[in-house]
Write a protein that binds this DNA or RNA. Structure first.
Lengths: 204, 204, 204, 204
DNA sequence: CATGAATGAGTCTTCATTCAT
DNA sequence: GATGAATGAAGACTCATTCAT
């Protein structure tokens, strides 16, 4: 019916993948359009048929990259019912992204954060706001804690702050793992984190 | 016989400060030598009297930046005796760097991590290895946990993993704060973190 | 599918010609990439599509320049049979390069010699060695003298030294001509040189 | 009486020597004022007490360099009486400069020629003209040939052209020697040159 | 006088973007 | 649509020259 469009989507995605891998390896600023083109097995000019600028490419790349988290998280959350299960789901979906896909891709996270802090990618700013995403994450997690407290599972804690702390561990572990994969065991960290955290906030 | 006398140390430091501030604002890769020179109120060429290259400038800047943490931490640790006090010292020195100095400077952290992950600053690599620094941090914290367990204060936990988790919260909070200072209260986080964490790992 | 089609060889040659002319006029070290680009009616960046660096440009220019001599010499030598004819061919091909092509180009010779003496163009050193070229020239001329002696045309002379002297006149005349074209008559010099030299080395 | 002036002369000369040696090694264009200062064991600024500019330094250096030839030649010519002796004196003084002084200094010759051809050192042009020097050399040599012909020693040759050829050998040998000292024997060349040349132009 | 720290004009080189084919 | 050759603005770095001490 509309084969050209499918083809376009695919090629666009191919470019994005090439861009993400290149950026993961050397950082967005060090990636040359040329390299992306080569890695995507297309001409340099062709990239500009799909994106207006380098900025736009990495804007789109970051969005696509973040989407993966959301998808994974959403899937895991579906089956989670109790607050405990929900927290577990978040912990494990965060930790598991490092196993899914090409783990090298996770290096992109540092650029995502950098963009979030500096907000100098105008293309990205138009459609994406990491600050809001973090707020949303916090809302989700906060409601879990809130539920837990109401249900008498968790003791009375400062929900907002515990939320920040909870999300912080996940990001912080990621950083350590990105810097030194050999000396950081994410799987085990997930287990211990769940265990310890529960102890820390549970009643009794 | 009597050439212009300048405090080389001081001027070097002025350049470094200018570089750090510029990098904090826009990211290392987006800082131009010209900008640093202008900010330091000196000529472009003068910078090259103090540093061999842009790479070296930011290598030195990162080292100086990290030194601040170490200094602050060391100071706090001096007075800490019990494991609990020591953990508290680490938590607070990490959180307090955001109050000391120009808080904007803390944005540099994201570049420091990026360098640590990508390791593409050869000048920096010669004299500085973030991986090792993290290992050292881990050793210090691990020994605190070890002491705490021996003293019967902490329950039997997987020291290595809890160490990672403990350091992770600090970094993770930093990221959240860097991205959204308004919605993250570091001070309160420190309190709650100490409280919750203690609960999580203490005996009973 | 159908990118801009350009004769890469031709354009490369155009750049080289522009570089040679500029260098002939002001000396290699005083030529700016900008100037070459302007003279070749192309953009500055384009030059770097054909050459890696300024050094490489002048390496290639020198090689192309020297090639002209060899070609001219080879052509003349083809018809020469007797030692006398051969020497004449060498003399005239050396002298005639100043008439062929743009005579201004001959100024490049001084840079060629400078490179040969200093050998500081690494690109050039990889593929070209003036010392060897002179050795080869000497071998060729020496064998002519050798033949002439065996044939009883030339008297017993120190072949190696006479060879050096013979080649020296050609280079030396070139220098004088380059410095003061009005007061040096290369054509006449060729005649007299042949005549005198023959007298000097012939039997009787 | 006037010790300061002597001191100045000496220091000026020291600078010139340093400049000459540096230029001999790497070519005028590649010598930095800094290097000259270091080699002369003085401050960079001090150089500008003695010379207005880099151009002036090398203008003066070239003049001093050329003076050496003249001095040597003049000394040798004093004792020469017959045309043969005079030619011999010129040949040997030209060849012997390579033994006197630091032979490495002879590399400067190529820069001298380059300046002579391009004439782009305005400072030098004011007080020095290689073209005129060559003319003068030619006049001297020509008068020797003229005398020789009148005396019936030399056969009737085209004086101007033979003069050029005679001077050409000397320069040409120098070039060969500069490029490849191992394979060029200047001493022997002088002998053979004298011998052959005499044969070439003598009566019978 | 002597110095060397400071300077900024000048250069090479890179690379995102354009556009003729 | 696809391409890659061409481009020039931008940026790191050099170095002759100045000038405060």
């Amino acid at each position: 019916m509309c084969p050209k469009i499918v083809d376009k989507k695919e090629r666009r995605h191919k470019i994005l993948l090439a861009a993400m891998h290149a950026a993961a390896e050397k950082g967005i600023k060090n990636v040359k359009i040329d390299e992306i083109a080569k890695a995507a097995h297309i001409g340099k000019g062709t990239i500009y048929e799909y994106f207006q600028s380098k900025e736009e490419i990495f804007g789109a790349a970051i969005i696509e990259f973040m989407q993966q988290f959301e998808d994974l998280l959403a899937k895991k959350m579906l089956r989670a019912v109790t607050p405990q299960e929900k927290l577990k789901a978040i912990i494990y979906s965060s930790i598991e992204v490092s196993e899914h896909e090409d783990p090298e891709l996770m290096n992109l996270l540092i650029d995502v954060w950098a963009e979030a802090i500096r907000q100098d990618n105008e293309e990205l700013n138009k459609v994406f706001n990491m600050k809001e995403i973090y707020c949303e994450y916090r809302k989700i997690v906060a409601s879990i804690f809130s539920d837990g407290i109401k249900s008498g599972i968790f003791r009375k804690i400062d929900i907002e702050t515990v939320t920040s702390i909870f999300l912080a561990v996940l990001d912080g572990l990621m950083i350590q793992w990105l810097i030194d994969k050999e000396n950081v065991n994410l799987k085990k960290s997930a287990e211990v984190l769940y265990d310890t955290f529960m102890k820390g906030i549970s009643i009794k």
